[in-house]
Design a protein around this nucleic acid. Structure first.
Length: 564
RNA sequence: CGGACCGUAGCGCAGCCUGGUAGCGCGUUUGCUUGGGGUGCAAAAGGUCUCGGGUUCAAAUCCCGACGGUCCGACCA
């Protein structure tokens, strides 16, 4: 491709809505243009890079035995009603009506459609295991689209679904996909870390997320450098360090704490350490109020409460409910309430803590939880933060920011039961299919690569996904000899299957260098009269400072070796 | 959905407070110049100042509303 024929404009300034480096660079390098909030157009260079990522994903899916399909994006609401997600997906799902007033959704994911297909097409154990996938746009009505392709309303996702005879088979499929993911991210040049994750709304009981560490990441990941444990903050566990307040200091007594509500306020007011105050929260578990106690300096992780209460839907109680079952908000505590009370493990055995008195303006001090209240269970219930103790090896955890580029779920039979997707086993008995699902945000992966691989001059594309592998800069486009040699080299490279982008513009050299760096071609070849006077083309990797002179006869091979 | 800010040429911005001929840089076009890390000079094209209403002799500027965007928070396969 020649620049003078390409639809390619680089920008000196990034649009002001681009916040993170990868978004700025992809716009500036002319790969992406914004169509609307969370909606981006791929320019010729951008789509080439995306197609290369896609190709790698396809190859590895096929290698893992998955078969490609393609489902409609526009799906009848009935499918979603059958799984229950028409209700549970909420406003994040685009819904629309056709002219006959029938409801449709723009698929945000495709468990329903795949399961419905499996119900019809899979009828025998002989067909198992079966893994099918598609590469298709997905739609989500994001509250706040941002960061370009990282969080858009429309994005390209590879989604795969496995169907197995039983749990053991599903484990094998899960492992196959997990391994394929590791290979995919390695091949596209992305450093990812698989972390344990919560299963979220999609359901199921086991999950890994593939995270790319980045300062701009929207998720917190706790990891242990000692043993390699890594988990999403939503799910991370810890060994609770017991609090020191285990000596009985007296009977529980009221102290006046006028206008002091938040634990920090009470602590400051009374001169007590914050973690000696117990934070009491009233939550609704399937609409039924329960009380949860955590140390005053910690946050409840509702997902952990949900797990403890067998998957009950957890919501915060409104003020009126709190007043009715305990006391005025900000002054509540577990003493004397008739609610079920659950407490964080760190509170086990505490005998001298401060809790709300269920009376405006008063707290109770010297409270011994087991003496003065009834706690049903002590469990790990707080959101893990940096410095907490690794559940695997006992060393402190560190927290990093990350972006999720892929996820594997074991779904069990949630969807196959909803759709009654069964097969006949060896004995002729119908059995329910066991499922897994596996997603990769392909467009997000593309931008994550840029986020991870750039310098002050621009993008540094890994050769496997670069829109073109080689930039060939003709510095003297008016010099026929230079042009001729450059064209010969371009032909030689293309015959080796190497993509070449020729900068044949009548621009000054500096402009071409800057643009080649910005776009990030892995290898740059300069064709100019000065270079030829020194013996040939000047060749260098994007990551190198100095070029080397290479004779025209061997230039193609040298370039090829640099790309390997 | 709560709080803050913004909307002026393809991109980045000034002008608005104090109403009176719509500007600058980059990019684009033409000519000359230059020719190895975003040359220099000159000329030119390009705008319903987001939209609607109001105030006024007069609105990019003041007021009201809508829409769009950004940031913080909440939320989020």
């Amino acid at each position: 491709m020649r620049w003078t024929q390409a639809l390619l404009n680089t920008l000196r300034d990034a649009p002001q809505d681009a916040e993170i480096i990868s978004h700025k660079l992809m716009i500036r390098a002319g790969m992406l243009r914004k169509l609307g909030g969370g909606l981006y157009t791929y320019m010729p260079l951008g789509i080439r890079a995306l197609r290369k990522v896609e190709a790698i994903v396809r190859e590895e899916m096929e290698r893992a035995g998955a078969q490609e399909t393609l489902f409609p994006i526009l799906q009848p609401a009935e499918l979603w009603k059958q799984s229950g997600r028409w209700e549970t997906m909420g406003p994040g799902m685009f819904r629309l009506k056709d002219r006959k007033d029938a409801w449709y959704v723009l698929a945000p994911t495709a468990e329903e459609a795949f399961t419905a297909l499996a119900k019809n097409e899979i009828s025998s154990y002989r067909q198992l295991p079966c893994i099918i996938y598609q590469m298709q746009d997905k739609f989500r009505d994001e509250i706040r689209p941002r960061f370009g392709l990282i969080r858009g309303k429309e994005f390209l996702m590879k989604d795969a679904y496995s169907f197995d005879a039983d749990e053991a088979g599903a484990d094998v499929s899960y492992k196959k996909m997990y391994d394929a993911y590791v290979r995919i991210f390695k091949r596209v040049g992305l450093n990812v870390t698989p972390v344990e994750a919560d299963t979220g709304d999609i359901g199921g009981n086991f999950s890994h997320e593939f995270m790319v560490f980045a300062a701009s990441g929207e998720d917190g990941i706790l990891s242990c450098d000692a043993c390699g444990y890594a988990a999403n903050q939503e799910r991370a566990e810890r060994i609770a360090s017991p609090l020191p307040y285990t000596e009985i200091a007296g009977v529980a007594e009221e102290v006046a704490t006028p206008d002091q509500h938040a634990c920090e306020e009470v602590a400051k007011f009374s001169g007590t350490p914050v973690n000696q105050i117990v934070k009491s929260l009233v939550m609704l578990a399937d609409k039924k109020p329960v009380m949860v106690l955590v140390p005053g300096d910690r946050e409840l992780n509702p997902l952990k409460l949900r797990r403890l209460l067998n998957g009950a839907k957890i919501e915060e109680a409104d003020e009126a409910t709190v007043l009715q079952v305990a006391g005025p908000c900000g002054s509540i505590g577990p003493v004397g309430v008739t609610l079920s009370v659950y407490a964080d493990l760190a509170l086990k055995g505490v005998a001298d803590v401060v809790v709300g008195a269920n009376k405006e303006g008063y707290h109770l001090q010297h409270v011994a939880l087991d003496r003065d209240a009834t706690v049903i269970a002590y469990e790990d219930l707080v959101t893990v933060t940096e410095g907490d103790i690794c559940p695997k090896c006992g060393k402190p955890l560190v927290i990093r920011r990350g972006t999720e580029v892929g996820q594997c779920f074991k779904l069990g039979t949630k969807y196959s039961e909803a759709f009654n997707a069964t097969y006949l086993d060896e004995t002729g008995a119908p059995r329910i299919l066991t499922m897994g699902c596996y997603g990769i945000g392909v467009s997000r992966t593309l931008q994550a690569i840029v986020e991870q691989s750039n310098d002050e001059n621009g993008i540094i594309w890994p050769a496997a996904v670069a829109p073109y592998q080689v930039a060939l800069l003709i510095l003297d486009p008016d010099n026929p000899e230079v042009v001729q040699k450059a064209e010969q080299l371009a032909e030689a490279l293309e015959s080796k299957g190497i993509d070449v982008f020729i900068d044949d513009r009548a621009e000054r050299p500096g402009v071409k260098f800057k643009d080649a760096d910005l776009i990030g071609f892995p290898v740059r070849v300069v064709a100019g009269a000065k270079g030829f006077a020194k013996g040939g083309f000047e060749v260098r990797r994007r990551t190198e400072k100095e070029s080397t002179i290479v004779a025209p006869e061997v230039a193609a091979e040298t370039v090829q070796s640099l790309l390997a």
